[in-house]
C-alpha cells in the first residue's frame, strides 16, 4: 500500500512539479517560488490521501503554494540577474519587465510562452478560464516586448 502511494506520488510529482515550480517562481520570484514549491510538495506528500481525491490536485496544490509563499518575506528583487553563461540569450531588461507584470500575467506568459505549457494546463493550475489565461499571456508578452523593444518576428 505504501509502495503504491509512493509510486503514485512520484508520478504526480513528475507531472505536476514543473508546472508548479515555474508558476510559483513566476508568481513570487525565484527564491520564494522555490521555497513555496518545496513546501507545497511536502504538504502534498503529508496529505496525499486527501489530495488524491481532489478534482484538480495541481490547482489545489498551487493554492497551497500560494499560501506557503505568503508566509515568506518578499524579496526586494523577485527576479535576480542570472550569469550570462547560464542564460546567454537573456537581455538585462527582461527581469525588470517581468517584475512590472501582474502576477497572473507573469505566470501565464512564463508557462505558455516560455515553457510551452498548454492553456488548459495553466487554466487548471490557476483556476481560471482558458480565455483569461490567453488574455493574461498575450498582454504579458506584449508588455515584455514593449519593455525590451522587440517585435514578434524576431528570429528564433
Amino acid at each position: 500500500m505504501e509502495a503504491d502511494d509512493h509510486r503514485a506520488f512520484t508520478r504526480f510529482v513528475k507531472e505536476t512539479e514543473p508546472r508548479l515550480s515555474y508558476a510559483l517562481a513566476a508568481a513570487y520570484g525565484l527564491e520564494v517560488g522555490a521555497e513555496a514549491t518545496a513546501d507545497a510538495l511536502a504538504w502534498a506528500w503529508e496529505h496525499w490521501e486527501s489530495l488524491q481525491g481532489k478534482h484538480n490536485p495541481a490547482g489545489y496544490l498551487y493554492r497551497v503554494g500560494q499560501s506557503k509563499a505568503r508566509r515568506y518575506h518578499r524579496p526586494r528583487v523577485l527576479f535576480p540577474a542570472i550569469p550570462v553563461a547560464e542564460a546567454p540569450s537573456v537581455e538585462p531588461g527582461l527581469t525588470a519587465a517581468l517584475g512590472s507584470l501582474s502576477k497572473n500575467q507573469r505566470v501565464a506568459v512564463v508557462l505558455i510562452h516560455g515553457m510551452a505549457f498548454s492553456e488548459r494546463e495553466v487554466a487548471d493550475l490557476l483556476g481560471i478560464s482558458r480565455w483569461s489565461v490567453r488574455t493574461h499571456a498575450d498582454r504579458g508578452l506584449r508588455r515584455i516586448r514593449e519593455a525590451l523593444g522587440v517585435s514578434a518576428d524576431v528570429n528564433r
Partner: peptide
C-alpha cells in the same frame, strides 16, 4: 536578439530550482 519566449525559457530553466521526489521524501 532572441525572442522573448526563448529568453523566458532560458531564464527560468537556469533560475528555477527544481524539486525532485527524493527532495520531498
Amino acid at each position: 536578439m532572441s525572442t522573448v519566449e526563448r529568453q523566458l525559457r532560458e531564464y527560468f530553466d537556469a533560475g528555477v530550482e527544481r524539486i525532485s521526489v527524493d527532495d520531498v521524501m
